[in-house]
């Protein structure tokens, strides 16, 4: 499966990780082109139906990035996201979608490097997992 190019969809919080991604871009850091980012106002806003819909529409993986603990602009959003996504990961597992295909990370506006690292790692893991059937 070496030439498999996974499609990774990201939901990025406007206040932190989206900035982080921007920073990575501006500073010329490269990250895999398999990654498609969608900006959301807060990770807490992500409805599980969106994530499920992404898989249904052909995503091989979904990555959600939110503000660090205690730094969410809406106070609770990132914790809500964490709880939702943890439950959702278990549920997807029951549908035969491996848990590794849905990830959540805390990435701040200044963490361009971490952003690149997280995305690259997930793309390479997805390559190993192969396409979602």
């Amino acid at each position: 499966m070496n030439n498999f190019e996974p499609r990774l969809l990201g939901f990025l919080c406007n206040w932190c990780s989206y900035e982080g991604a921007d920073l990575a871009g501006r500073s010329g850091r490269e990250y895999p082109s398999n990654f498609l980012a969608i900006r959301v106002m807060c990770s807490g806003r992500i409805d599980p139906q969106l994530v499920i819909g992404a898989f249904k529409m052909g995503a091989d993986g979904v990555l959600v990035l939110g503000c660090h603990q205690g730094e969410c602009h809406y106070k609770e959003g990132n914790y809500q996201a964490l709880k939702k996504l943890t439950l959702l990961r278990n549920m997807l597992g029951e549908f035969g979608i491996e848990k590794e295909r849905l990830r959540f990370h805390w990435v701040s506006a200044s963490e361009g490097d971490k952003f690149v690292e997280v995305v690259s790692q997930m793309v390479s893991d997805l390559k190993k997992l192969g396409p979602l059937l």
Binding site: P48, Q49, Q69, K83, T86, L87, M91
Partner: peptide, 25 residues
């Protein structure tokens, strides 16, 4: 709402009483 399970999952997640990653797990 299209997906009843997804919807309920949100509702349930919001009343889970912890912020600790391990405990959530």
């Amino acid at each position: 709402v299209i997906d009843q399970g997804g919807k309920f999952l949100s509702a349930l997640a919001s009343i889970i009483d912890t912020r600790d990653e391990e405990e959530i797990e």
